[in-house]
Design a protein around this nucleic acid. Structure first.
Lengths: 336, 336
DNA sequence: GATTTTTGCTTAATCGTTTAATTTAAAATT
DNA sequence: AATTTTAAATTAAACGATTAAGCAAAAATC
């Protein structure tokens, strides 16, 4: 790698100190009253030598890297891919770069990702926390590292967060099904103590109870690492026997997709034999033969707010901010 | 941010020089023959103070950041999201972190992304180059920055690359359609001089010619920034009139999706009125009422190979490597 | 016992910036 | 003409690690 040009190279060429070059390169020629001709000479030399500042050196000196760490469950999941995209754009508008990592909902993986990003001195974190990482988050807080949780948070740890009103979302979805006349409504959720999942389940339960359908409640829980097989078992259970359900709510986009594969396999008639509400938008929902009614999350807002809140913290704000966004129920044919 | 512990803090606590601490922290206590008791003391102090090395400082000194720059067209596109995921995993296995950016197929955006990542001293680049960025790539090469192009490359610039055998893929797809008895086969591609697109088009053209269907060739080009509307116009054109086609090949996953929305809107009967072959896998292809036959790319291999080739370069290899991977034609119902 | 070798450690430069403190010279004020 | 102010530059320390070179004391060799 042919040595890159540094401040020193320019300084030598123009025969001034590196300080002057640094001032000019940072547009401080006025405050630091650098002579006009010198400014020009420095500018010319910089252009000629194609100078590009070494951000690493600057970071070391300034103690800030202008880098954000983003940890999601899986960047290949469209929901997180889309969030990442919004975050990237917002961050870049403010001069920040994003380093990302996927935790696979695994606390160990998330721990090492956090460590790696800390070592790289990110200025702050946007984290979709995995289950059982509350202590990790607490530790970050104690280190006073700016932080915002997205999609989920921990009740026991006071942090900034940007999430969906998950309770409201599923409550609304179930109410919609009930209005449409469905009573035997089931739900497939991830087996997880994470608050977003708990709240989605609670929305289902309370909506059922509020309509005196408490005894019809049927929740099946699926393991993240076995989503396909567990969902299949769950679906078989829910649509068989004399207690079989007539409508179903899925708790995430991945679960919805897994569920649709089962529906296809079982050749269920939608919505006649089974009404469906999915979670998050997805092109697959549009092309399913009976286009899915689904709970749409405001991904754009979520990403933007996350960056905004994080940058506030980085810039020294000490107040803790909680943002809870509203869903939108997109009604289509899968609910009759 | 309560000051983090540095080598110096440990050195002071144990009352040795920072050099010794550095040696121990890097497992060089043998070569540098550090005393046994001192090693233990340093280890203990490091643990007690929860020392985590400052990767920025190390990078500055070592001249290597253990960071890879990844530039794709759009991280929210599942194809690139999946590639990114594979790259992330492979890189992390080798102790590398990934910084990413989305170019939106725009040469200007790509240029600034490259600059930003250079300033951050990434050790190398994996780039899905946008149209008209051959000079940018050439400039990177001249700076001797390790580099591998993925998905596409430039004929005029000799670089490492990892791509699909795009010609073979579409040639195969068209041959398949012809075997199935289709003759009036059209194609919708992006209007782009990029080689992957050119090759996909060439595969179509040559397969048609090889079967004496040269006069049936109908290619419609779509602008990346107007994919939905342009695709709609193109589809209307292709399926109308007396020269209407009976089968169609889409050149990418986004085009396939756009096309499917039109098919839906036009209520075309697949495959009776129109046979379809899509590009890349996608859950939407599975749930389309007539599951799509499609050209599957070996994403996993593509990502892995890209990282492997790049790390080779970073480790000093001077040979240029070209990898061309094979597709797989997944046959389903959309071709009858 | 003198010399050489080994062991165990320290010193200090370096990476490329930033920036507070200082210096020098010229201009303005008295 | 002496003093003060302003302008325009330099110097050098700092960020936190790495690492070549050097040095002293202990151990081994003769």
């Amino acid at each position: 790698m042919s040595k890159r040009t540094s401040l020193k190279d320019i300084a030598e060429k123009v025969k001034v100190s590196t300080a002057l070059v640094s001032y000019v390169m940072n547009g401080q020629e006025k405050e630091k009253r650098v002579g006009k001709e010198v400014v020009k000479k420095i500018r010319d030399a910089a252009a000629e030598l194609n100078y590009q500042p070494n951000q690493i050196a600057r970071s070391l000196r300034k103690g800030s890297t202008k880098t954000l760490g983003l940890i999601v469950a899986d960047i290949a999941n469209p929901f997180f891919g889309n969030i990442a995209r919004v975050i990237e754009d917002e961050a870049s508008k403010q001069g920040y770069t994003v380093i990302f990592g996927s935790s696979d909902e695994d606390s160990g993986k998330m721990g090492s990702l956090v460590d790696i990003l800390i070592n790289r001195q990110v200025d702050g974190f946007i984290i979709v926390p995995a289950e059982g990482t509350d202590l990790q988050i607490k530790a970050l807080q104690e280190k006073k590292i700016p932080l915002v949780l997205t999609d989920r948070y921990f009740r026991e740890v006071t942090t900034n967060y940007v999430v969906l009103d998950n309770f409201g979302a599923t409550y609304d979805a179930i109410s919609h099904l009930i209005e449409k006349g469905f009573k035997k409504i089931g739900m497939i959720a991830y087996k997880s103590a994470l608050i977003h999942m708990q709240e989605r389940v609670r929305g289902y339960v309370e909506a059922m109870n509020a309509n005196n359908l408490g005894n019809e409640i049927r929740i099946e829980e699926v393991r993240y690492n076995h989503k396909r097989s567990d969902t299949e078992k769950a679906m078989n259970k829910l649509v068989a026997g004399d207690k079989k359900i007539s409508a179903i709510l899925f708790a995430t986009n991945t679960l919805t997709i897994s569920g649709l594969y089962c529906v296809k396999k079982l050749s269920l008639k939608i919505p006649e034999e089974l009404a469906i509400i999915g979670f998050d938008g997805n092109e697959a929902f549009d092309f399913f033969y009976s286009p899915l009614t689904y709970i749409e999350q405001p991904i754009e807002e979520m990403g933007k707010e996350s960056v905004r809140v994080l940058l506030d913290q980085i810039q020294g704000s000490t107040k803790t901010i909680h943002v809870e966004l509203r869903h939108q129920l997109i009604q289509r044919e899968s609910c009759g």
